[in-house]
Amino acid sequence: MSTDIQTIKKIAHLARLEFNEEKAQEMLQDLNKILNWMDQLRELDTENVEPLIHMSEEVNVLREDVAVNTVSHEEALLNAPKKDSDYFRVPKVLE
């Protein structure tokens, strides 16, 4: 399977791409290489091959997600550079 320069120009137009004639020829060669590779893949017998679902057989073991307060309000305020009773003081960002 191969394509021509008109097809490249049409694809470029649809993709909103612009390139000169030299780049169009390079794109044509690259696209033809990809299409030839796809033709080679079609020749393979994949009748008894299961579809690939995951890239590896490894299984992630994750812990249960439990919400826990690890730092109390008072402990968090101890590390604040500026504080006002129960709140953090930060510089103004809006006038």
Rank of each mutant, 00 (worst) to 15 (best):
E26S: 06
P81C: 10
A67N: 00
S56D: 11
K33Y: 10
T46K: 10
S72N: 04
E75C: 03
Q6R: 14
T7I: 07
S56L: 00
K83Y: 02
N69F: 08
A15Q: 11
N32Q: 06
V93D: 12
R42H: 14
N69V: 10
S2R: 12
V66A: 03
W37R: 14
K23V: 07
V49H: 08
K92G: 04
Q40M: 11
A12M: 09
A24K: 04
A15M: 07
H54C: 00
P51V: 00
I34F: 11
V90T: 14
L31Q: 03
S72F: 01
A24W: 02
T3H: 06
K83P: 02
I5P: 00
K33L: 10
E75T: 06
D86T: 10
P91R: 13
L31D: 00
I34N: 03
H73R: 10
L77Q: 02
D45N: 15
T70F: 04
L44M: 10
V59S: 01
Y87P: 01
Y87Q: 14
L28A: 03
K92R: 10
E50T: 06
V71C: 05
V66I: 10
L77N: 02
K23C: 02
F88I: 15
N60V: 06
P91L: 06
E74M: 06
L17N: 02
V71M: 12
V61P: 00
Q40G: 06
Q29C: 04
E22W: 02
I53M: 05
T70A: 05
N79K: 14
N20P: 05
P91Y: 04
K23S: 08
M27F: 11
L94T: 11
K23M: 11
M1E: 13
T46Q: 12
L28H: 05
L17I: 05
A24E: 12
L94N: 14
E18Y: 05
E22R: 09
L78Y: 08
T46C: 09
I5N: 02
S2K: 13
P81A: 11
K9R: 15
M38D: 09
H13Q: 12
M55Y: 07
L44S: 02
K33E: 12
S56C: 00
S72D: 08
V71I: 15
W37Q: 12
T7M: 09
N48Y: 13
S56Y: 01
M27S: 04
D45P: 03
D86F: 07
L44N: 04
K82C: 07
H73Y: 07
L52I: 11
K23R: 13
P81H: 12
D45W: 07
T3F: 10
N36V: 14
L52Y: 00
E57N: 06
A15Y: 06
T70E: 11
H13W: 04
E95L: 12
V61R: 01
N48H: 15
S72K: 03
K82D: 13
E26Q: 11
E50L: 09
V59L: 04
A80E: 09
V66Q: 07
Q25E: 10
